[in-house]
Simulated scan of single mutants.
Amino acid sequence: MAELARLRHDEGVRLDPDALSAIYAELGERGAEKLIGRATEDLAGRLQDLRQSLAEGRATDLVRAARMLAQVGAQVGMTSVARVARDLIRATEAGDATGQAAILARLERIGQRSLTAVWDLHDMTV
């Protein structure tokens, strides 16, 4: 009898604390929290857009949403999110449907963990 292996996806995320510090230095605590809050909402919306675009086979929309997600991630120091979003763009432009699905699943996991990490980092510095 064959055994099934269950893979556990436990990947660390990378944040750029210098980017977050710069945001707080430039905008102050209230402004930085607003910016990060908007980025959080934008990240969630972009992930939904990505899922829908992939499901509907709209490659142009998927690339556009992934580019915006990469920009938002870079803006708030979510380097892992930005990097994986760029990976999704490359897979889409190469026509790699299997890669797209796998990378989008990874992006969703990393996105959630990055959001948590950003807020945890904020809590430690305040």
Rank of each mutant, 00 (worst) to 15 (best):
Y24V: 08
L54N: 01
V63L: 01
Q71D: 14
H9Y: 15
D61I: 01
G99S: 07
L88C: 10
R106W: 06
V126I: 13
A65E: 04
G37R: 02
T60M: 04
E11H: 09
G28N: 07
I110S: 06
E93H: 07
M1H: 08
A97P: 13
L35P: 00
E56Q: 14
L107W: 00
V72P: 02
D123M: 09
A85S: 14
D18C: 05
S21E: 12
G77M: 03
L121M: 12
A32T: 01
A66E: 08
T40I: 11
L15F: 06
M68R: 14
L54P: 00
L47D: 10
A65S: 14
Q100I: 06
E11Y: 05
A19M: 11
E41V: 05
D123G: 04
A2E: 07
V126H: 13
L69W: 01
L20E: 06
I36Y: 00
R106Y: 05
R106P: 01
A55Y: 11
R67G: 12
V13H: 00
S114G: 04
Y24A: 04
G37W: 01
A5G: 03
R109F: 02
M1E: 11
R90T: 12
L47S: 14
L20K: 04
A74Q: 15
Y24W: 05
E93N: 14
M78K: 03
A82Y: 02
L115T: 07
D61G: 06
A39Y: 00
A65M: 04
A32N: 05
L7P: 05
I103D: 00
V81F: 12
R113G: 06
A66T: 06
R14W: 03
V84T: 12
R90Q: 15
R51A: 14
R109I: 11
L15W: 02
W119G: 02
A39K: 03
A59V: 15
R46W: 10
D16R: 05
Q52F: 14
A25H: 14
T98P: 08
T92M: 10
R83T: 12
S53F: 12
D96I: 00
T40K: 15
A70C: 11
R109C: 05
M1F: 12
D61P: 00
L69G: 08
D61K: 10
G57M: 11
A105K: 11
V84K: 00
A91N: 07
E93F: 04
E56T: 15
L43R: 09
D123P: 00
I23C: 11
L115K: 01
I89R: 02
A85L: 09
L104V: 04
K34W: 06
D61C: 02
V13Q: 00
A97Y: 11
G77S: 03
Q52M: 14
V81Q: 07
E41G: 15
A39T: 01
R113A: 09
A55V: 13
L27W: 07
A2G: 08
R30G: 02
V81M: 12
L15H: 00
D96L: 07
V63N: 06
D120T: 14
V84D: 04
R46M: 06
R6K: 12
M78L: 13
I23K: 10
V72R: 03
V118C: 03
G28Y: 13
T40W: 10
G12S: 13
S114I: 01
G95W: 08
A25R: 11
A5N: 15
L27I: 04
L62Q: 09
A2H: 07
